[in-house]
């Protein structure tokens, strides 16, 4: 009979060698392997191939022959950045120590529709209120609020101040033009201050497998009334093409509220929540891994259309006027 001590000796050796078996080795750092890591991860987790009618295998066939083992880091970066650019997605970046790739076509080819100097000089003036990230000023009997980044957190006190001033006014203008997004919770908080009841504003689904159409079920996205109080008067939300990501979500939240109107140009999009990844050569990247549609099944990735389409007029700017704000004031006064 085999002695137990031998059985356990064999077991110990077996377990010690398990690490090689259980833990796969890290992929290599050669340009070809780095290219394959990135291409495969995008292939398996990116969420808009079908929506954008993009053949990622064809993209591989186009770019992979250009990868060579001898190529330098800069050449490899440029190749991978070009490949990712094909996704036409503002939520796609390749970050290296020396550069960050991006696709900003979602606003670069469209009217700016925003003049920051004009806002500061004419509308905010020198005595505007600063409540955290919210800058606000009375324009006659209407409160104008400017919010430049949803990455900046709104506190309860910040929002209470704005709501208190809004209640003493005839209406509210929330300017989120050039707001490139940030944290969705800030968008939800701000919108909740104008919701009188729980409201479904969109539906979202997340990738659930490597197939281009492998998604989990659609799930409702809702806003609920803010527990500290709400403002039920008229609200106009100003957007432009540089209103992106969390700002797109905010525009959609406001669009479904009965007391709110969106005005300006459509938002830039950014309806996919980005997932992150890393390459063995030390570079990191991100790309969209979800889809969000509005109540009419329109992808937020394509931007949220405004209720009232207005562009900033150069002529108005020259005479010191933001005609989009003027239009918003007129709408409030009509109500």
């Amino acid at each position: 009979m085999v002695k137990p001590i031998w059985i356990f000796s064999i077991l110990v050796i077996f377990c010690c060698s398990c690490e090689q078996w259980v833990m796969p080795k890290d992929p290599g750092t050669d340009p070809v392997e780095v290219f394959d890591q990135l291409w495969e991860d995008v292939y398996e987790r990116y969420s808009f191939f079908d929506h954008k009618n993009l053949d990622w295998e064809q993209v591989r066939a186009q770019y992979r022959p250009e990868v060579e083992d001898e190529m330098g880091q800069l050449e490899l970066y440029e190749l991978l950045a070009d490949m990712l650019f094909e996704l036409r997605d503002g939520h796609v970046n390749l970050s290296t120590g020396f550069n960050r790739s991006r696709n900003w076509e979602w606003y670069q080819e469209f009217p700016v529709n925003y003049d920051e100097n004009l806002i500061e000089e004419v509308y905010l003036g020198r005595d505007y209120w600063i409540s955290g990230p919210l800058s606000h000023q009375m324009i006659g009997d209407i409160l104008y609020v400017n919010y430049r980044s949803f990455a900046q957190t709104i506190s309860t006190a910040n929002l209470q101040v704005v709501l208190e001033r809004a209640r003493r006014s005839r209406g509210l203008i929330i300017d989120v033009r050039n707001n490139g997004g940030g944290n969705l919770s800030n968008a939800s908080l701000l919108a909740s201050a104008f919701a009188s009841e729980e409201t479904v504003y969109a539906r979202q689904r997340i990738k659930s497998g490597p197939g281009t159409n492998d998604f989990g079920p659609w799930r409702d996205m809702k806003i609920s009334p803010w527990e500290e109080g709400t403002f039920s008067g008229p609200v106009i939300v100003l957007t432009n093409r540089r209103s992106y990501s969390a700002t797109t979500f905010f525009a959609q939240m406001m669009k479904v509220l009965p007391n709110a109107i969106t005005l300006g140009d459509q938002t830039g999009g950014g309806g996919g929540t980005p997932v992150f990844g890393e390459l063995t050569n030390g570079w990191t990247y991100r790309f969209s891994a979800t889809q969000t549609v509005d109540l009419e099944e329109r992808q937020l990735e394509d931007g949220v259309l405004t209720d009232l389409r207005v562009d900033l007029s150069e002529l108005a700017v020259r005479r010191g006027e933001d005609n989009m704000i003027s239009a918003a004031i007129a709408v409030i006064r009509q109500q």
Partner: peptide
């Protein structure tokens, strides 16, 4: 955890 997020596949807030 699911394919992308923390919640397991099949998990729903509902």
């Amino acid at each position: 955890s699911g394919y992308i997020g923390a919640d397991p596949e099949g998990f729903s807030e509902e």
